[in-house]
Design a protein around this nucleic acid. Structure first.
Lengths: 211, 211, 211, 211
DNA sequence: CATGAATGAGCCTTCATTCAT
DNA sequence: CATGAATGAAGGCTCATTCAT
């Protein structure tokens, strides 16, 4: 009764997991089918193709991102609050869908070759939110001018790489501890850090001559 | 007369390129050999194995990163200058070796499964630089306390994802322009942005009561 | 409806032929597939592996040997009759399955490295028959004591090598004829010879004092 | 100062070992070279070819067999003594050159495809000895008529398979012991058993009514 | 002669994809 | 729709053999 049938949805879930783990080339259709609990031939019947499968996964994931981000963009917040809300929304997504940052990274690393055109549209929605926050902040004199792309990718890039680095941080944990560093903070904390740094770092310079 | 023979070096170059483009699974040994101008069997003669090849690439790349980063860490700089120097060093690397951020992302996305233990040691050197900057800044009262891992991954993550996103930004250029956004800035500019935001965002709060 | 599907059975036949002719290392999976009338990938689908294929062949062959040998061991025969029956059963097998002695020889020559543990059990059954004949013969005072392993390997070894030597004997035929020797007797005749020699050679020494 | 240079001799030794262990197809030229302590290219320089190498090994081995067998055939022995001497000579060979029975088996199993014509001549010498023993025994009325090929292959086949079966017997030892069978007798003992069985089994039937 | 470095051919194995049932 | 069974097209790796030095 869904937009996509239940089976297809299960297949997409399984595929997202596989693709995130092994990349497009490394993912095996057989494994995806098994994970989804369907026959390999059945998978082909429903999705048609490894490439189409990848595109469908991509589209659905970026749709989810765009949705979550837009929902976080409630009007009436200060720039700092808005950035924090955005970071929190992303952190929630990344926690619930650990394959998301991995797939985003893989896709970008591959030169966005398999990114379907439709998914590009979702990007527009996502970027729009950050841009809106900055624009309002500059209008109200609270933020200094800054390239939206830089700000957006600072936030998103920082969170993606922080999520991605989890296994690495775990392997690194012993050494890090000896250096007095913690490595096991949840993504949400990294999001809060980023929002804070950006808010303070982009704050308009205090107007001189306040005497 | 080199640590690695000329041919092996050529093979590693080719492999880095191929791995960055296709991921480990997607990279074809045949393609690497052709790119390096050697016979496939010759490649095996010199390197032994796809996996060993990958590890060698990894080790060399991270060694280069560690070297460049450490060279940028000249003593006597203010925290802001030091962060800027670090960002600049990374930007230089990423410009000269565009496959570097891609491989780093791929490796992390795969859970650092193939990361050789030796490469982990390089990480320690790299992290150490950021940690040193923060420690000195806090000692001198110029910086507020902050988790080194957060700071480091903000800088590195932002630059990696910015580099990675290049093809995406290009595909996005038309739409972005219509929204009044630039998308084609070089990595160095992103590095400068990150260093600035971090410097201001981590600056110690002005001590009240300075009368 | 068989224990092994028809196709697998055909594959095992083909494999036995190929392994017998070329040894494990020399046998080509492609050739086996072609002989069996299946696609190479199909062969892997059904059997999984060159090594597994070899083990399956081995298991089936030794099972056949054990079955035939046990069937020949009808109770109530004199030692001589029993040995003759055993030899005849082996001869029948070797005639019908000319690859059998060859595979047995190859496997033994390789140190029984690939012999599956299950096949070892079949050996027990096979040896058991010879041992039974000797035991009964000694109980009844018809046979002198003798190591079962020696007796068994005299019979089996003689027949294996006689079968194996067929091409050699053929190449040798001209020379042999000139020396007044026949070389083209069927295995059955060698079996009868061996049974006879063993029966007389193991006969209890005539008790003296027979008045 | 030898007929074959020292190096070639070392290569042939190494090759015999390798061929015995892996068969012709399974033997690796690289491994032979390493075993012989020469460079792979050097091996080719000296021997020319994997096939030629095999033939040379074969020729030398069968020459050794023929020599040992002929030396054992001293005139003036009774048939039983002669067979025992023959068996003993073979046992000595098989003990000193454990690869010998294995190579003989492999070669026969492969249909004697690679057997050089020159080696066939050695066979003639070998067969000649057994034939001589039988002929003299029949002339003197001590032995009944029997096909030389049968007798020869009983002796040689039994000893070859007994040697070959060593690893198998070892794996089988536990089970065998429980069945009250020994499995670890040296080849010499098997040779003595065979000579004894053949001598008694081929003895002329006692002439009736000799009064 | 000895050696490191090719190299073409081939082999085992996998995988995306299709088809008959 | 679901499934077991193909299958063509690679892809990783090895190996016998050859050269330049």
């Amino acid at each position: 009764m869904d937009a996509v049938s239940d089976i297809v949805s299960r297949i997409l879930d399984a595929a997202a997991e596989e693709f995130a783990g092994q990349g497009f080339a490394g993912a095996k259709v057989e494994a995806i089918a098994k994970r989804a609990g369907v026959n390999k031939a059945g998978l082909y019947y429903h999705v048609g193709n490894k490439e189409k499968l990848y595109e469908a996964v991509m589209l659905r994931l970026f749709g989810q991102v765009a949705g979550a981000v837009e929902q976080a963009a409630v009007p009436g917040l200060s720039p700092g609050e808005a950035l924090a809300a955005l970071a929190e929304a992303l952190a929630g997504l990344f926690s619930r869908l650990p394959m998301l940052p991995r797939i985003m990274a893989l896709e970008m690393a591959s030169g966005a070759a398999n990114m379907p055109a439709a998914a590009m549209m979702e990007f527009r929605r996502i970027f729009g939110v950050t841009r809106g926050i900055l624009a309002r902040g500059q209008e109200t004199g609270l933020l200094r001018p800054a390239e939206p792309v830089f700000v957006h990718l600072t936030l998103v890039g920082g969170m993606i790489v922080y999520s991605l680095s989890e296994p690495l941080r775990q392997r690194f944990a012993q050494v890090a501890q000896a250096m007095g560093m913690r490595t096991d903070m949840p993504v949400g904390e990294m999001g809060a850090f980023l929002a804070g740094v950006l808010t303070r770092g982009l704050a308009a310079e205090p107007k001189e001559g306040g005497a």
